[in-house]
């Protein structure tokens, strides 16, 4: 086991950040922690990277205990905090050199590992890190976290504030790193990124709602899900919420994701109800649930 978490709890003053969290991450796995802001993801990362003590429970990373062997862990993991945490007044190359030196290595030694990422920012290597764009900052931060060839990589919301194209590239990079045998624990508030992980844990208010592969998690969705659209989105949501048979109504892009209380949902009945409420161009089609739908269902 690369990461093993058992019954970890942690509170700050009156706020409980983590409640009895347990999960295991296999070696070479890309494991995702999916949850909204304030779910406890960062706290969990800090416990695992030996930055915080848990109130209860034990955890090991790369077979080292996070309390007893914290020094060994600090030698063998790469950590990329949620906030951009590099030296803004140092250039790209200076940052990378600095992190290589404090980990007792050089850029040349592990260049093959970071090559694919670093070549993209290499043209800007003399630019100060503070002047980079969001996506480039993330690539630099990832390079810095990887420069010492860590066994386990902790990425706390690496794609927050990054444009969609860079996000896609970033995940492709993670997939490649995973093939090199690095265990990756990544957290994200974006549900669409969850599908790219091997396994995910859905986390909310410090509790794990579900742990499984993305596909199996989607299978747990208990109801039939419908995409509904009409000419007036706001009116549509309002009317659906007022509909007596509704089970859940969530806006989802240009559609509203709708589930019905009854097992024998009658499409015509709902269309007539909506027409009575002056809505036009109504379409209702069955659709496959996504991780977001499961999350909303579990969080209900």
């Amino acid at each position: 086991m690369s990461i093993s978490v058992q019954h970890i709890s942690k509170s700050f003053d009156k706020v409980t950040a983590l409640k009895d969290i347990s999960f295991k991450v296999k070696e070479g796995e890309l494991f995702g922690l999916i949850g909204p802001d304030g779910a406890g993801k960062t706290t969990l990362f800090r416990v695992l990277t030996t930055l915080l003590f848990a109130d209860e429970g034990t955890a090991t990373v790369a077979d080292f205990d996070v309390v007893e062997d914290y020094k060994s862990i600090r030698n063998s993991v790469g950590y990329m905090p949620g906030k951009f945490s590099l030296y803004q007044d140092l250039t790209v190359e200076e940052n990378l050199t600095f992190f290589a030196t404090i980990f007792g290595t050089t850029i040349e030694e592990n260049y093959d590992l970071i090559k694919e990422i670093y070549v993209q920012i290499e043209p800007f290597k003399d630019r100060r890190a503070g002047d980079l764009s969001g996506g480039m900052k993330q690539k630099l931060a990832l390079s810095c976290a990887l420069i010492h060839k860590p066994k386990v990589l902790f990425l706390d919301e690496p794609t927050t504030g990054v444009d969609p194209v860079s996000r896609k590239e970033f995940w492709e990079m993670l997939k490649r790193l995973q093939k090199k045998g690095i265990t990756i624990l990544v957290s994200t508030p974006y549900m669409d990124e969850a599908a790219l992980c091997d396994r995910i844990a859905l986390i909310q208010d410090g509790e794990i709602l579900e742990i499984d592969t993305p596909n199996d998690i989607i299978k747990t969705f208990p109801k039939k899900l419908y995409n509904i659209s009409a000419n007036n989105m706001y009116q549509l949501i309002k009317n659906l919420n007022a509909y007596k048979h509704q089970y859940s109504v969530y806006p989802f892009g240009e559609f509203v994701h709708y589930t019905d209380q009854r097992n024998d949902f009658k499409k015509e009945e709902l269309i007539n109800y909506l027409k009575e409420n002056n809505l036009k161009n109504i379409t209702i089609t069955e659709t496959a649930p996504t991780i977001e739908d499961v999350f909303m269902e579990l969080a209900k």
Partner: peptide, 13 residues
């Protein structure tokens, strides 16, 4: 303040 201490702590230095 900049969060770099977090990275320095999680390093062998």
């Amino acid at each position: 303040e900049l969060g770099t201490m977090e990275i320095l702590l999680v390093s062998p230095i």
